[in-house]
Simulated assay, not measured.
Amino acid sequence: MASPSSSYLLLLAAILALVSWQAIASDPSPLQDFCVADKDSKVLVNGFVCKDPKGANADDFFMAAKLDMPRDTKLSKVGSNITLINAMRLPGLNTLGISLARIDYAPLGENPPHTHPRATEILTVLEGTLYVGFVTSNQDNKLFSKVLNKGDVFVFPKGLIHFQFNPNPYQPAVAIAALSSQNPGAITIANAMFGSKPPISHEVLAKAFQVDKKTVDWLQAQFWADNHN
């Protein structure tokens, strides 16, 4: 039987391991007031190099994104248009661990199933109605879904497959999403599986999705457009 002191040490070690894992699994905390991205730097790091803070100005923290203006969804095959504001577009966001997106949905438009490998997302509906949901990891693959109306909020946990769909055939919808990474990334499932370059083997996809190779051929021949601006 373990002594109280050894049990305490094991508990302490477990807590330290958990804290260390959480630190690794998210954007690093800044060590200074700000780190405006120097996108002209030739140095390659996991993020952006900071430019000299003495040369920073208010424009580094500003972007005339006009997020109050409707976005065109007509050119999107899935009927949505995403305007992402991240560190690549707003240099002052570098190292701050956040980003923002406006999502416009055409009538019956959707933001198809996708994941953000580096961010949790919190979505607020500004106009219209959305059917949203996420699926838990194996083995359960449980669907958590909800119909959201104007002003409603929903959270998509980091890394889990999620989606949004506008069920109204006549009215568009608009949402704002906040994400817990300066560069959350987006992996759209259908695009990744059937639009990869070079294509994934027919045998792999046919077995994985339990369909015949002709179906895989047809899916790979589609134009898998990106709905991100």
Score class of each variant (00 low, 15 high):
Tyr170Lys: 04
Tyr170Gly: 01
Tyr170Leu: 04
Gln171Ile: 02
Pro172Asp: 13
Pro172Gln: 13
Pro172Lys: 14
Ala173Phe: 12
Ala175Gly: 15
Ile176Phe: 10
Ala177Met: 12
Ala178Pro: 11
Ser181Cys: 06
Gln182Tyr: 05
Gln182Ser: 13
Asn183Ile: 05
Pro184Ala: 09
Pro184Tyr: 05
Pro184Ser: 08
Pro184Leu: 06
Gly185Leu: 05
Ala186Thr: 14
Ile187Trp: 04
Ile187His: 08
Thr188Ser: 13
Thr188Cys: 07
Thr188Leu: 06
Ile189Cys: 07
Ile189Tyr: 04
Asn191Tyr: 00
Ala192Pro: 07
Met193Trp: 01
Met193Asp: 03
Phe194Leu: 02
Gly195Phe: 00
Gly195Val: 01
Lys197Trp: 03
Lys197Ile: 05
Pro198Asp: 02
Pro198Glu: 03
Pro198Met: 00
Pro199Glu: 04
Ile200Trp: 03
Ile200Met: 04
Ile200Phe: 04
Ile200Ser: 04
Ser201Asp: 14
Ser201Pro: 04
Ser201Leu: 00
His202Ile: 01
His202Arg: 09
Glu203Val: 00
Glu203Asn: 08
Val204Met: 01
Val204Ile: 06
Val204Leu: 03
Leu205Glu: 05
Ala206Cys: 02
Lys207Ile: 01
Lys207Tyr: 10
Ala208Arg: 08
Ala208His: 08
Ala208Gly: 02
Ala208Val: 01
Phe209Gly: 01
Gln210Asn: 12
Val211Pro: 09
Val211Lys: 07
Val211Gly: 02
Lys213Leu: 04
Lys213Asn: 08
Lys214Asp: 09
Lys214Tyr: 06
Lys214Ala: 07
Val216Leu: 02
Asp217Cys: 08
Trp218Glu: 12
Leu219Pro: 12
Leu219Gln: 13
Leu219Met: 14
Gln220Lys: 10
Ala221Asp: 14
Ala221Gly: 10
Ala225Glu: 15
Ala225Lys: 15
Asp226Tyr: 14
Asp226Pro: 10
Asp226Ala: 13
Asp226Arg: 15
Asn227Phe: 10
His228Gly: 13
Asn229Thr: 15
Asn229Leu: 14
Asn229Ile: 14
